[in-house]
Each structure stands twice: as structure tokens, then as C-alpha cells.
Computed example of a mutant assay.
Amino acid sequence: MFNITGEIKKSFNGDAWHGNHVMQTLNNVLPENAFKHFIPNAHSIAEIALHLTAWTEEVTSRLMGNAAAEPQMGDWPVPTETSAQAWEKIIFNFKIANEELIRFCEIIKEAQWNDEIEESLNPTIANKITNVELLNGLIQHHAYHSGQIALLSKF
């Protein structure tokens, strides 16, 4: 079977096909730029990093069998501090969230990847996906936002 756990590892801190993995992209951000809004009405790099952490935690929760919900941190958490130490903490929390996800993925049995889960937050909409589809969505989410961060870092 396709090694989906290997793919999240690559996206997070491995040899990602799309370029730098997310951790490398985040580590390349200067702390003084992390909280700036370079584009009016767009998110800052720190907000994107918090969003990535929130959804990584939510995907882990769903894979563990919990019902789909908005991330505990919220969809787009707002940084409470804007210091270099706050930026380091945001990166650290993203790292921990991904390491916890990977640890859980490594104990999922191969047959469980095809188990369907209720994905929709709206119970009137029938929207079931498999565990592997859920994790693949997060991998795509990591790549998409990593690209945004890389572009914002050039300002």
C-alpha cells in the first residue's frame, strides 16, 4: 500500500517534492517578519503557522476517532504575542503537533487507513472520507500554506 505516513513526514520535515518542507520554510522566516501583514486583508506568516498547527491537531483528533469539529484553537488563531520568543513557540508547537500526528499514524494498521470517517461538520451533508484521504488533505494543506509562507517571506 501507498505509504501515507511517509508522505506526511516528507511534507513536514523531509524531502518534499514541492520544495522546502514546512519546517524548513518556517525556520527561514525572520522573527521580525512573522507577525507583519505584508498584504492588506491577508494573514501574517504567524497566523498561517497557527492555522497549520490547529488543523494538524484536528486531523490527529479525527484519526483517533473523535468527531469532526473546528480545531480546538479555532480555524485562524490570532497570535497573542509578537516577539521573537512567541515566534519560536509557534514553530515549536507546530513541530510537536506534527510529531504527535506522525507517532499516531505509525500505529494505525494498514487496513484502518481505508476506514471511513464522518468528515462534515454539518450532519445534514453526507460527506464521508477515509483516514488516508483525511491525511492526504492535510499533506496538501501543508504544501499550500508552505508556499504562501515562502512567498510572504520574500517581502
Rank of each mutant, 00 (worst) to 15 (best):
L26R: 13
L26M: 15
L26I: 13
L26E: 09
N27K: 15
N27A: 05
N28K: 11
N28F: 06
N28P: 05
V29M: 04
V29F: 08
P31I: 09
E32I: 01
N33D: 14
N33H: 12
A34V: 04
F35D: 02
F35C: 11
F35Y: 15
F35E: 03
K36S: 00
K36I: 07
K36N: 07
H37K: 15
H37D: 03
F38C: 04
F38T: 12
I39E: 07
I39T: 07
I39D: 01
P40W: 04
P40K: 15
P40N: 14
N41P: 01
N41F: 14
N41V: 13
N41W: 05
H43Q: 13
H43F: 11
H43G: 00
S44A: 04
S44L: 05
S44W: 05
S44E: 09
I45T: 06
I45G: 03
I45K: 03
I45F: 01
I45N: 03
A46G: 08
A46S: 09
I48C: 03
I48R: 05
I48K: 02
I48G: 09
A49Q: 07
L50I: 13
H51Q: 14
H51R: 09
H51S: 02
H51C: 04
H51M: 03
L52Y: 12
L52P: 10
T53Q: 10
A54F: 00
W55M: 06
W55R: 08
T56E: 06
T56P: 02
E57A: 03
E57P: 00
E58V: 04
E58G: 08
V59T: 15
T60E: 13
S61H: 05
R62Y: 09
R62F: 02
L63H: 10
L63P: 15
L63S: 12
M64L: 14
G65M: 14
G65I: 11
G65K: 12
N66L: 11
N66F: 09
N66K: 11
N66Q: 14
N66A: 14
